[in-house]
Computed example of a mutant assay.
Amino acid sequence: MTTNAPRPDVVRYTAFSSTPDGGNPAGVVLDATALDDSDMLAIAAELGYSESAFLTPSPEGVGGQEGRTYAVRYFSPKAEVPFCGHATVAAALALAERIGPGELVFSTRAGVVPVEVAQEGGTIRATLTSVEPCIEEIAGADLTEALAALDWPSADLDPAFPPRIAFAGARHLVLAAATRARLADLAYDFARLETLMHRLDLTTIQLVWREAATVFHVRDPFPVGGVVEDPATGAAAAAFGAYVREFALVPEDAVLTLHQGEDLGRPGRLTVTLRPGDPRVRVSGTGTRIH
């Protein structure tokens, strides 16, 4: 984008909530063809949301989706991230209002992510299908450093949920709190956790507490993006779905409900669907435009 080029239109949507004051807001640029990396980073920083999505229409459709295929890049206020779930949902909802519900294909740095947008009564719901996930162990010294940065004693972890790094488009360290009070008490060392996360190439820390068999409360520190906490994190939800399946903590065909943002005053709800025989994870939610 040259100095004299017109600024691209930026629309704002919140994802995983049907009201503008809930969920996680994202900026969406529906045609970023004229933007370079510095332009996108500058727009994301100006918006100040945890991530914004920048779409470039693809002239050739993927999987038969001609005219509904986009290359997508995601930027936090500090850096590009390979994949962002809430900005994917926000972008899909923005497109659906303009070209109608249906199937979309997003080509991201993490891989191809299909998104289905459907009208459900008076609301629109977007469902993304993750890239193939994987789970890996975390070294003992790195876990010790993560807990020290969070100021979480290891005794406050739920022993049923072993700490692991989970990936379904981006890498997240999954740590489970033994109590809701532990999850609610989040005051961490920003710089210390950011340093560790850069070294381990983590996007967020996925902190969880299990309320019921398939109901969880989650929080996501995001210092590497310049944000203390992400209000609703679709990429981490997908990674968490893969994690609980890996350890058989839920049935193979489970539908999980993740509550996030309550501790920030921005309540949101993420639905995570697991299907037998398909390693990919589906994450869905509603959203609405922020005026």
Rank of each mutant, 00 (worst) to 15 (best):
56 T>G: 04
59 P>C: 03
177 A>F: 11
231 P>S: 02
264 L>A: 12
46 E>T: 00
237 A>W: 00
144 T>V: 06
195 T>W: 10
274 L>P: 08
284 S>D: 06
146 A>F: 12
21 D>K: 05
231 P>V: 06
290 I>T: 13
283 V>D: 12
61 G>M: 07
253 D>G: 06
142 D>C: 01
250 V>E: 00
19 T>D: 08
241 G>C: 09
46 E>L: 06
186 L>Y: 02
225 G>F: 04
29 V>D: 00
18 S>Q: 11
183 L>D: 08
165 I>M: 12
145 E>I: 01
159 P>H: 08
238 A>G: 05
245 R>H: 01
252 E>C: 00
14 T>S: 13
274 L>D: 09
112 V>R: 11
193 L>D: 06
150 L>G: 15
171 R>G: 08
183 L>K: 10
160 A>S: 11
247 F>M: 00
287 G>F: 05
117 V>Q: 00
150 L>K: 12
254 A>Y: 11
18 S>E: 14
62 V>Y: 05
174 V>N: 05
255 V>W: 05
84 C>V: 09
234 G>R: 02
55 L>C: 08
77 P>V: 09
240 F>K: 03
110 A>R: 01
245 R>N: 02
204 T>G: 08
12 R>G: 04
30 L>M: 11
254 A>R: 15
193 L>V: 09
89 V>F: 08
205 I>P: 02
75 F>L: 10
218 V>I: 13
129 T>C: 07
259 H>G: 08
260 Q>R: 05
182 R>E: 07
265 G>F: 06
27 G>D: 02
136 E>A: 04
286 T>V: 12
256 L>R: 01
92 A>M: 07
129 T>Q: 07
18 S>W: 14
267 P>S: 03
74 Y>F: 15
131 V>P: 01
147 L>H: 02
199 R>C: 01
92 A>C: 05
177 A>K: 07
248 A>D: 13
219 R>Q: 06
70 Y>I: 07
154 S>Q: 08
19 T>A: 10
56 T>H: 01
251 P>L: 14
44 A>E: 09
241 G>K: 03
91 A>W: 07
287 G>W: 04
217 H>F: 14
213 A>T: 12
188 Y>L: 10
